[in-house]
Design a protein around this nucleic acid. Structure first.
Length: 275
DNA sequence: GTATGTGTTGAT
DNA sequence: TCAACACATACG
């Protein structure tokens, strides 16, 4: 897709065109997202209609961020049958249930206000901390996954030996040295390092990441077989590795399903918006 | 001055 | 209900 650099250049050319003549307008790029409209300065507005009236949800630098704002409003305004840009919240999972509860206990006006001020995620986080305490849920768990911005690092179709009895997954060298570089130093020449990976359900898996001199390979060992069994991984299945974009650098692992969903409160992922 | 958000209209 | 377009006005 487009790189950030390309997008910025594109936007600034538009901006120049707009500001130069003051009243000379040119065609603005449409958004591929519902509820998102372009702004003359290259940013994106979000809006939703209710009772023949437009409700303005604010302006955003990121097109996808505007789309997520729309999704939040849509789900608050229209409930279960809201049409959304990304995967809608579900009461089936804990994260979704908490978010839905959060939506329900605030008025439409309050939600809109949060969106316009860009404080929605923060407020949701605070609310989650509170309910995590009340329900005895671990805070670590409550804050992970859904509202965390992530980028995909790489994926691999597992081989028969990856899912056999060897209790190891080979990380293609190129990917290991590109994405696990930070830990490679530790992995190489020593006993490796224990890394935590979180799966889509929020469960944390701990694997040893190390370098095998004998085969010149980077591998995940210790603990890997449990993941294979629980996920019922078969040869050819594709697993994906992700990492949060924040300072924590949390790692994620998940099997690629039929359609890997884009998370509502995560940054867009499957459409290549990384960095 | 620029950024934001409204007035308005035609399409779906 | 929706987005495109033009533009008024809020804002720093």
């Amino acid at each position: 897709m487009e790189s950030g650099a390309v997008r910025v250049a594109f936007d600034s050319s538009l901006e120049a065109e707009y500001s130069a003549a003051g009243t000379t307008y040119s065609k603005l790029p449409s958004s591929r997202y519902r509820g998102v409209v372009p702004q003359p300065n290259g940013r994106w507005g979000a809006q939703i209609y209710k009772r023949q009236k437009r409700v303005w949800l604010g302006t955003f630098v990121d097109e996808a961020e505007a789309a997520r704002a729309y999704d939040v409003a849509a789900q608050r305004f229209r409930g279960r049958d809201a049409v959304t840009n990304f995967v809608p919240l579900s009461a089936e999972d804990e994260e979704g249930a908490l978010a839905l509860a959060f939506l329900a206990k605030h008025s439409k006006a309050e939600i809109v206000d949060m969106l316009r001020k860009h404080t929605f995620l923060d407020e949701l986080r605070h609310s989650k901390r509170a309910s995590a305490g009340a329900f005895g849920v671990s805070r670590r768990r409550a804050q992970s996954y859904h509202e965390t911005a992530r980028v995909m690092l790489f994926e691999k179709a597992v081989t028969p030996s990856d899912v056999g009895k060897l209790n190891r997954l080979v990380i293609p060298k190129q990917h290991a040295e590109t994405h696990f570089q930070f830990w490679s130093g530790t992995a190489e020449g020593s006993k490796g390092v224990l890394l935590n990976f979180e799966d889509a359900a929020g469960k944390v898996w701990r694997f040893r990441y190390s370098y095998w001199n004998s085969s010149q390979s980077y591998v995940l060992t210790k603990g890997w077989i449990r993941f294979v069994k629980e996920k019922n991984l078969k040869p050819g299945d594709v697993i994906r590795f992700w990492q949060s974009t924040g300072p924590e650098k949390q790692l994620y692992i998940e099997r690629r399903d039929a359609e890997s969903p884009v998370r509502l409160f995560g940054v867009n992922i499957s459409e290549g918006q990384a960095g």
